[in-house]
Design a binder for these strands. Sequence first.
DNA 1: CATGGGATTGACT
DNA 2: GTCAATCCCATGC
Length: 196
Amino acid sequence: MRRAPAGERRLGRAFFDRSVHAVARDLVGCRLFFDGVGGTIVETESYERDDPACHAYVGLTERTAGLFGPPGRAYVYLSYGIHSLLNAVAEPEGEAAAVLIRALEPTAGLETMRSRRGDRPERELCSGPGKLTEALGVGLEHDGADLSRAPFLLLGPDGKPPAVVTGPRIGITKAVDRPWRFCAAGSPFVSKPWPR
DNA sequence: CATGGGATTGACT
DNA sequence: GTCAATCCCATGC
C-alpha cells in the first residue's frame, strides 16, 4: 500500500475533535479546496459555546444544531443577508464550537475565482470570509457537509506550518477582546485590519 | 405574526 | 473614515 506523501495528509474527524482554539491555530497553513478551487488557509477565528459572539451561545436551535454535531463538518450561515460564511465544527459531539475560515492564499482555480468575483488582484480573491465562499462557490446548501469528503478537500500543511500571530476577532460586537483570531505571520492574503 | 440584529463587503466622502 | 444592502432566524407580543 502506498504511503501518502506528507503534503497530502487529509484532515479527518480526529483533527477537529479537540479544543476549538487549537484547531483554529493548526488550520492556518492547511489547504482547503472545493471542487479543486482553493488554497492555503491564512486566517481563522475560533468560537466556543460559552462565548457571547458564538451563535450557539443562545442554545440549541434548528439553525445552530450543526454546531453541536460531530466535528469535521461544515457550518455555513448567512451574514448580513448577503454573505455565506464557512465554519468548521470542532470539539466532541455535544459541544458547540466552530472555526470561522476567514481568508485563503489562492493556489488553485484562480480563473474560476475571477469568473465568480470579477477580475481582481490575487490578494483580493479570498481575503475575507464572505469573499472566499464566493470565490470557491460555497453556499448555504453546503451547511452540514463533511469537510473530509468531496467536493471538499482539506489537507495538512505543505511543508513546515507557518508562524501564527493572534489578535482580537473582527467584526463582532460581543466579547471583542478575546484573542481568538489566528493569522499566518506576514501574509498579504489575510483580511483587514492586518495584525501587527 | 412582526421585528431587529448580525462572525461583511464595497462604494462613496 | 462612514454607510447601505439584504435575508435568515430567534425572540417576543
